[in-house]
Simulated scan of single mutants.
Amino acid sequence: MPKPYPKEFRDDVVRVARNREPGQHLRQIAADFGISESCLTNWLRNADVEDGTKPGTTNEESRENRELRNRIRLLEQENEVLRRAAAYLSQANLPGKWALPS
């Protein structure tokens, strides 16, 4: 996978594309910066979401969701360990094969 463009570069390209003169096509702007038109279109769409002008999930929300999913996974694992420990300890306290003779 190619290395992503720096954020400053993407921001500059989006700014130029948003402030383009009437009649100037995105294809030409993308060619001037050496990127594909689809890449520029994606950058513009993502910038609109980040700015709140279009609905969607921002980068910050995506990062937070990823962290929360990881935290949930960890808590579920801890819960399973505690559940198994409780089951094991409750078996140890039952009278039966492990009980000491009186």
Rank of each mutant, 00 (worst) to 15 (best):
K54N: 06
F33C: 01
S38G: 14
Q24V: 12
R45H: 02
R63L: 05
E61A: 07
E61T: 04
P2T: 09
N59K: 13
R66P: 09
L44P: 01
E67I: 05
Q28L: 05
D32K: 03
E8H: 15
P55V: 04
E60T: 02
P2F: 10
A30E: 03
Q24T: 13
D11K: 04
L40G: 09
S36Y: 09
K7N: 07
K3Q: 12
W43C: 05
Y5I: 09
Q28K: 11
F9L: 07
D48G: 10
V49L: 01
I29R: 05
N70L: 04
S62M: 15
L40C: 08
N19P: 10
C39K: 08
D48Q: 02
L26T: 04
A31D: 13
L68T: 13
N42L: 02
R18N: 15
L40A: 08
A17R: 12
N59P: 13
P2N: 11
L40Q: 07
N42A: 02
P55Y: 12
V14H: 04
H25T: 08
T57M: 13
T58R: 08
N59F: 14
I29N: 01
E50A: 03
N65W: 11
R45V: 05
G34V: 03
S62I: 15
P55N: 07
L44Q: 03
E50T: 07
E50I: 00
R69I: 13
T57I: 14
K54A: 02
I29M: 00
R20P: 07
E64W: 15
A30F: 00
V49Y: 02
E67C: 01
A31L: 11
D32Q: 09
R18M: 15
P22Q: 12
E67G: 00
G34M: 01
S62G: 14
L40E: 13
F33T: 08
P22C: 11
R69F: 07
G52R: 07
K3D: 14
E8Y: 14
G34I: 06
L44N: 00
N65D: 14
R20W: 07
R10F: 05
V49N: 00
E21C: 02
L68M: 06
P4W: 06
W43S: 08
I35A: 01
N46K: 00
P2V: 00
I29C: 07
E64I: 15
R45Q: 08
N70K: 03
A30W: 07
R66C: 11
L40M: 06
E61H: 00
C39P: 10
G56T: 09
K7L: 04
E67P: 00
R66N: 10
E60V: 06
D11L: 14
S62Q: 14
A31W: 13
R15G: 04
T58F: 10
W43F: 01
F9V: 02
T57N: 12
C39N: 09
S36I: 11
P22V: 04
N42W: 04
T41C: 11
N19F: 08
R45A: 12
E61Q: 01
R10A: 10
L40S: 11
N65E: 13
R69G: 11
E8K: 14
P22I: 11
G34L: 08
N19W: 01
K3Y: 12
N46D: 09
I35Y: 05
W43E: 06
D48T: 05
V14G: 07
H25N: 10
